[in-house]
Deep mutational scan, measured.
Amino acid sequence: MKGKVVSYLAAKKYGFIQGDDGESYFLHFSELLDKKDEGKLVKGSMVHFDPTPTPKGLAAKAISLPLE
């Protein structure tokens, strides 16, 4: 699924993505496929991810940034 980063707290390594389906997904650095892309996780960045339901809500897994 595609989505847009709505927040990312680099110090805490987490944030949120708004998916194309309108839902909010929890984003964690550990799910970023290329850790070098962390600096690109800023508000408004477009990402691809696997939407995954968890006991705490919806989460983004296997997060990647589109090729530039």
Rank of each mutant, 00 (worst) to 15 (best):
F29M: 06
K2C: 15
S7H: 11
S7G: 07
P51G: 10
K36N: 13
E23F: 14
T52W: 15
M46I: 15
K43A: 12
S7Y: 15
A62F: 10
K56W: 12
L33Y: 05
G57I: 02
H48R: 12
Y14C: 07
A59R: 15
M46H: 12
V47C: 02
F29G: 04
I17M: 02
S30G: 08
G22Q: 05
Q18A: 11
G19Y: 01
V47N: 01
Y25M: 01
V42E: 08
H48L: 15
D20I: 10
F49A: 00
E68P: 12
A60Q: 02
F16P: 01
I17L: 05
I63P: 02
S45Y: 07
K4G: 04
V5H: 01
S24M: 15
S7E: 10
K36F: 09
E31D: 10
L32V: 04
E38N: 04
T54E: 05
K13E: 04
K43N: 08
E38V: 10
K4V: 14
G39Q: 13
Y14I: 06
Y8W: 07
V5M: 04
F26D: 02
K56A: 09
V5E: 03
L32T: 01
A11P: 08
G15A: 02
Q18R: 14
V6R: 14
F26N: 01
K56N: 10
A11D: 13
F29A: 12
P53K: 14
L9W: 15
K36Q: 11
S24I: 15
K12H: 10
G19C: 03
S7Q: 11
E31F: 09
Y25S: 00
M1W: 04
L58V: 05
I17A: 04
S45N: 10
G57V: 01
V42K: 13
I17E: 00
H48P: 01
E23W: 10
D50H: 15
T54P: 02
G57R: 04
E68N: 12
L32W: 02
H48Y: 15
K13N: 05
K40V: 05
Y14L: 05
A11C: 12
D20P: 06
G22C: 08
Q18S: 09
S30A: 09
A59W: 14
L33I: 12
M46K: 11
K35I: 08
P66Q: 14
K4C: 13
S24V: 15
G3W: 01
A59H: 09
P51F: 08
K35G: 07
H48M: 15
A62Y: 11
G44A: 04
E31R: 05
F49H: 01
I17S: 00
A60Y: 00
S45M: 15
K43Q: 10
D34T: 06
G22N: 07
E68G: 12
L32E: 00
V47K: 00
Y14M: 07
A59E: 07
G19D: 03
K35D: 07
H48G: 06
F26G: 01
P55L: 11
T52P: 02
E31L: 03
T54L: 06
K35C: 08
S30M: 09
G39K: 14
L27E: 00
K36G: 13
V6D: 06
G19K: 01
A10E: 10
A62T: 08
K61Q: 07
